[in-house]
Design a protein around this nucleic acid. Structure first.
Lengths: 205, 205
DNA sequence: TTGACTGTCTACCGATCGGTCGGTAGGCTA
DNA sequence: TAGCCTACCGACCGATCGGTAGACAGTCAA
């Protein structure tokens, strides 16, 4: 059913599109740039993806599927919701170092989505979002988590992380003598403290 | 020194540019749209701002000046840093309801700045950022605040807020029966709790 | 009255945009 | 061999991009 050997060109297009859309946004990226980026003609790109929007959608879908799958993996790997949420914080931080494009595209999509959504487009990250809020609700049902609003908590957690990540290239020059890696380490510790104090129920022995 | 009566057209241009750049981004907004938006010819726009970048810069500058001034106002109005930081949280939340364009432009600028900055452009929000981290450091010197990294704390606080705000138009349809205003209220309370638990030192009587 | 200046206009420019078109080379199947 | 399909290409399209040139009207000071 799934094609065993997709001719690689389409995959290469999705990869280059991910990085260029992340860097310059949808309108700031031309299909000429994308085609040249992997050394094919523009019309060849349009053979694989009939419109620029379709290619953009493919990038989002791949990204959303990966992220949803990662969260599902965490939820299956740990039965304890406390372990799940801390594992998710680790995942967030690790991914930002390994795949810095992601946060940019997600932010850009959130900014552009409202007007795109008018054209009856679906939101690719709905499963990802539901998976995360589901994790919170489940922990609350177990009595492990405080009764915060799950959606708000997740958005604040994601925001605290992603905003810092996309700000770093601009802001880091103003960090007093703090080295880059130290910022990421401290940030990770701060996120954990945030989860511990705002979400985890003290077991009170 | 400051022009007593700028002919209003330039101001109208900055206003329409603020909302269109917020909505569609720099590349997604054409100077034709901007000119038509206030009913003048495109070349008339270029009379006031010789390039699109200059107009964009004027928007950023106005925004950054306003925001810096607001924070300075808070710091002068309260001598107690604890009152300052909670007043700032209120300011953040109030402004997002009154001036929703702001958060969009700031986010877009952070995303686009890294490649723009290569062209030796300055960052408009540096004073705003320094004012906020200065507030944290001052509170720490008074012993009122915990010894968190001020830059990281500010970025996480701003991120938790701004990310939620820009996500709302997309995400709100997935809030179970929660009404819009309630989300904003809960969000505000959550931000306050975050500040209280992660920043404020327990005075221990 | 004249001349400089300001704000606005129409007309136009070259470059680039997303997308279409006709066609070709090569592999697979009948 | 014939027919078909996939991947790719260069040439081209109308539309739009940011920006320029020049004309014209109103204002104000010399």
């Amino acid at each position: 059913m799934t094609p065993q050997k997709p001719p690689a060109t389409a995959e290469k297009l999705i990869d280059i599109a991910e990085s260029l859309f992340a860097e310059k946004g949808f309108y700031g990226t031309s299909i000429r740039d994308l085609a040249e980026g992997i050394g094919i003609a523009k019309s060849s790109l349009l053979h694989h993806f009939p419109t620029k929007e379709k290619l953009y959608g493919a990038v989002l879908k791949k990204l959303a599927d990966e992220m949803t799958h990662e969260v599902q993996g965490i939820r299956e790997a740990f039965s304890d919701e406390k372990e799940q949420i801390f594992a998710f914080v680790q995942l967030l931080c690790n991914n930002s170092e390994k795949k810095p494009n992601r946060e940019n595209i997600i932010l850009r999509e959130l900014l552009d989505n409202p007007k795109r959504a008018e054209k009856a487009k679906k939101w690719f990250f709905v499963d990802y979002f539901r998976e995360l809020t589901g994790m919170i609700k489940s922990g609350q049902n177990q009595g492990m988590f405080k009764p915060v609003n799950p959606e708000i908590f997740i958005l604040q957690l994601l925001g605290a992380h992603r905003y810092l990540i996309i700000s770093l290239p601009t802001v880091k020059q103003f960090f007093d003598a703090t080295i880059y890696q130290q910022i990421l380490t401290d940030h990770r510790a701060e996120l954990e403290s945030f989860v511990k104090e705002r979400l985890i129920n003290e077991e009170g022995v």
